[in-house]
């Protein structure tokens, strides 16, 4: 079953048909979501009543378009804010941890490395509830002691940001470590020999070398945060991010305005995905 081995044409035909079928299966749900954003009907289902842009631009109920839906627009804003902070935190901590694991030697390094991988094998919903339990306990304890309620420790955006960061940082650490591993340390030594301080050698030589990995990790962190559901579900308060708002709407059954949001999300994430794939390709060449 490799190109150089002769194969029964019938079997080969069936095989290719199977692969084609697989790609139809991959594309089908996304295509229907996109298509029904333009259906002139109150529900995202058949029959097809003709083409409309109402689900994007119409300003009145019951056909309220996306760009006039304040709750959805607001939750998009919240998601962007959360994703921004998660990205900043994850790339910063990811870079510092990458340096720690690649450059330093210290006792319990392997234990710490394994612990750092843990968030990948803990279900997101458990990360969420454990952080919720601890922060509430701390907040209750402080409140009993001093009478002061620490608002950020109650379900809300701070906890959502911390909860998402807790596992996204693992991914950014792995991505940035992988590139740091390939760095030629003699370049830094040359800078030191030429009179650079340790800090300026890292800043002018190593960090620019790491930049593509940092941007790549940033894009992944941003998308993972924007799309996260499980951890966010347990930690969000009254200001719900987009995924939570959409989930509530989906359970109730909604107008095709959700298709319009989904289409925008698909376009935005494909652009980010293509940027990141292209960057990876450049790195390899």
């Amino acid at each position: 079953m490799i190109p150089s081995i002769h194969q029964n044409p019938l079997l080969r035909g069936i095989y290719i048909a199977y692969v084609a079928l697989f790609f139809i299966y991959l594309a089908a749900p996304l295509l229907v979501v996109a298509a029904f954003a333009f259906n002139d009907s109150l529900f995202p289902s058949l029959p097809w009543n003709g083409f409309t842009l109402d689900w994007f631009f119409n300003p009145t109920e019951p056909r309220l378009g996306l760009f006039h839906e304040t709750p959805i627009l607001k939750s998009i804003g919240i998601s962007l804010l959360v994703a921004f902070w998660v990205t900043v935190l994850a790339v910063t901590v990811g870079t510092s941890s990458a340096f720690l694991f690649e450059r330093e030697d210290f006792p319990f390094k392997n234990v710490l490395y394994l612990l750092m991988l843990m968030p990948l094998v803990v279900p997101g919903i458990i990360l969420g509830i454990s952080i919720l339990v601890l922060s509430s306990n701390v907040a209750n304890f402080v409140e009993e002691l001093t009478g002061y309620d620490i608002e950020p420790l109650r379900p809300g955006l701070t906890l959502v940001i911390l909860g998402q960061f807790s596992f996204i940082a693992t991914i950014s650490t792995l991505v940035i470590s992988a590139r740091l591993k390939k760095f030629d340390i003699t370049l830094e030594e040359a800078a030191l020999n030429l009179g650079a301080t340790r800090w300026s050698a890292v800043w002018t030589i190593t960090i620019p070398y790491l930049a593509p990995a940092m941007v790549g990790a940033g894009i992944v962190a941003f998308l993972m945060s924007f799309e996260n559901f499980n951890t966010t579900l347990m930690l969000s308060g009254s200001d719900a991010p987009l995924t939570i708002t959409m989930f509530d709407r989906l359970k109730e059954g909604s107008t095709p305005v959700l298709n319009a949001v989904s289409l925008l999300l698909m376009l935005a994430s494909s652009v980010l995905a293509l940027i990141s794939i292209m960057m990876q390709r450049e790195r390899k060449e």
Binding site: F23, L26, A27, A28, P29, L30, L31, V32, V33, F36, F43, P44, S45, L46, L223, F226, E227, F229, T243, M246, F247, L250, L258, N259, S262, L265, M266, S269, S270, L272, A273, I277
Partner: peptide, 26 residues
């Protein structure tokens, strides 16, 4: 092509299956 659908939120993908499979669906 294999990777692209998974850059889209799980919520959107599940929504797609709901549209495909529901009683009034595709």
């Amino acid at each position: 092509l294999c990777l692209l659908p998974f850059w889209v939120s799980e919520l959107v993908r599940t929504f797609g299956w709901m549209i495909l499979l529901r009683e009034t669906g595709v």
